[in-house]
Design a binder for these strands. Sequence first.
DNA 1: GATGCGGCCTCACGTCACGTGAGGGTCAAG
DNA 2: CTTGACCCTCACGTGACGTGAGGCCGCATC
Lengths: 254, 254
Amino acid sequence: MLTVGAVAELTNVTIRTLHHYDEIGLVRPRHRTDAGYRLYDDRDLERLQTVLFYRELGFALEDISTLMSDPDFDRGRALREQRKHLEGESHRLERMIQAIDDAIDAHERGIPMDNETMFEVFGEEQRAYQREAEERWGDSGAWAQSRRRTADYTDQDWLELKAESEAIVTEIVEVFRSGEPADSTAAMDAVDAHRQQISRRFYDCSHEMQVGLGEMYVADPRFAATYEGLAVGLAAWARDAIVANARRAGVEVD
Amino acid sequence: MLTVGAVAELTNVTIRTLHHYDEIGLVRPRHRTDAGYRLYDDRDLERLQTVLFYRELGFALEDISTLMSDPDFDRGRALREQRKHLEGESHRLERMIQAIDDAIDAHERGIPMDNETMFEVFGEEQRAYQREAEERWGDSGAWAQSRRRTADYTDQDWLELKAESEAIVTEIVEVFRSGEPADSTAAMDAVDAHRQQISRRFYDCSHEMQVGLGEMYVADPRFAATYEGLAVGLAAWARDAIVANARRAGVEVD
DNA sequence: GATGCGGCCTCACGTCACGTGAGGGTCAAG
DNA sequence: CTTGACCCTCACGTGACGTGAGGCCGCATC
């Protein structure tokens, strides 16, 4: 028969947690000393062990309670659902780690830099692209808006932007890899995130303009190389997804 | 200039979250209508975007606040620390998924009591953890004996073994479900059948060795998952039954 | 111009799984 | 008989919101 302190040490939980489980009736030690000290016997410890097992699996305490009291409870379904939940969490975590790696990377390379960070972050290709873009769009349109809006972005802003962009691209690649067709909701949502990010960060990007970008991703070898380097067939698929997304938004595309 | 509802839809957060961020001063829309409606402009949206970025990385809102207000903040360290934290979480999640898979496995095979049971359980688990078992028991002991003895089992032998194991586990589960205490004759007989089968089929399993197995069923999450998947509390109960059975046979157990 | 209806506002309490004291009793050792 | 480690019960705090209640705003419709 162990007291709270001993049980706490044994099972690696805090005393308060034991008090809490007692309060909510999840693990009630069946004995007390005359002075009111909780005393846990073997069966109490077993119950606690089972509770901790399910807690480790991420179940809520109330669900554990249900699970342990109702013998007809559908454990299989609960376990499968919990598994799905955990898998989603795991994927999310991996993406987060990826994104944070990028942020660290950018941070380490970005901090000692001045306001030219933009070129470093986006790579050398951006510099060449800038001239072309000016020719294509003129200096009074979207590109100008983009330059105005980004003029006073700090280094930090650029780092964030890069990580953000990579997260979006990662998502697009994942949807592509999963075999979703270009006109699936997942695909359209993924490319629309791209469009929205451009709108927020650079210039107001309409669906028509994004379709133009999409065409460029396929036709322009620099972009094509970048996207095909991520996954074969990605550039064309992304363009199709952009078109489908535009159509979904009621935009006419030929 | 967007209202809360529009921003909520755009950025996929709830209105309440926007209210909350306003309350704690994390993202304060810089305009209001005469009626008091919140109005978010581009800069507000950018700030929100940055906040959501760090939130995605798992930062606490207060830390995000610090991070965004203090230009001398050591972002690199924060990012690295967060990375470490996420990696630990990721590992934990993977272990959880593994354990839940075992639990699902056991559940599916245990509840309908159909085809595979002990065969798969022992077969696969033993294969998967063979190295660990060898380390634990050495290659000249029980484990090696088990391998030698099962090396030339025919398919027919395995089928018999499987049926035998199923019957034994079914019996154990039934006794457990009937509410018999672990030191009842029924419980002790059921687990002794288990011991005798191991002795016949795998290696000479003394009471002491079975007690070791019992401890492992409770302590090792992989085994615990398997048994808890069959019935909540089964692992600990089985261990106690094994101990009681050993005592009945005159073996001293501490 | 009254009426609806969807969207917005501000309190303000609820949630989950405990953390963190305050104030005080208990118990074995010195 | 005191000391210090351990235990008890309140009871409020935490983080990141969820969830109404009660009421104003603005536009369309009858």
